[in-house]
Amino acid sequence: MSRGDGRDGNGPDENGRKGRGLRILLPLLLAVLVLGSWEGLVRWRQIPVFVLPPPSLILRALVGDAGTLGASLWLTLTITLQAFALAVVSGVALAVLFSQSRSLAAALYPYAVILQVTPVVAIAPLVIIWVGYERVDLALLILAWIVAFFPILSNTSLGLSAVDPNLRDLFRLYGASRRQMLLRLQLPSALPYLLAGMKVSAGLALIGAVVAEFVAGSGTASGLAWRIVESGNRLNIPRMFAALALLAGLGVLLFAMLSWLQARLLNRWHESGLDR
């Protein structure tokens, strides 16, 4: 049965395509407009480069420093992705563990909360000292993981317990084991919650990686955050903007990838997957 045969009929599908087109076209149009007037304003008012560089200069910095910036981008990207993957695995594992043992959940959950509410900037120096400056990448990974971990844990926990009570009864009626209950009922029920958590978590992993690098300071790491600090110190503002643009692009890319994954996994069955 194709989606067109569903209760939506054919009309909304066409509207959906049109809506998607608009959703890409409109922000692009706005970007052109804003960048154009930015360029014009800077040239017309002759604003100094170290206050506000024109977009053309930022683009030139992006191309000219492609080697350094690319390496930095790669470092920040790998740390973010590693921390994110670690957060998903550990968050889901802990949530499953919590769902199996109420006393374990009661014992550990407060500490997960403490880890979450303590600002990562405040923990960063300690973690860096413990890990050692020579392995600062590991410190960045740990710090990014700490911030990315909690949304996965809390969302998955919520999802695992938000099972349709009638379905639970049905599974009990047919003598489902704990394992069957978990794999066939609780985890699928938790999937939409997990995916929502992953969207938040990926953004936080990036933030964590950047903040940790700021704290780690000079010369130890060379991710995008450090490029921003360094360019600022040298008043190389175009490069600063270039690094900033790359960071924003990275964040958008992560978000888009997870939105795609969410739509792909849920579109056949979950309300959030409906075209609207």
Binding site: N166, L167, D169, L170, L185, L191, R268, H270
Partner: peptide, 13 residues
Amino acid sequence: IGFVFQEPTLMPW
């Protein structure tokens, strides 16, 4: 024993 609930109670996924 078979059980039919008030709602269809199907697994949506």
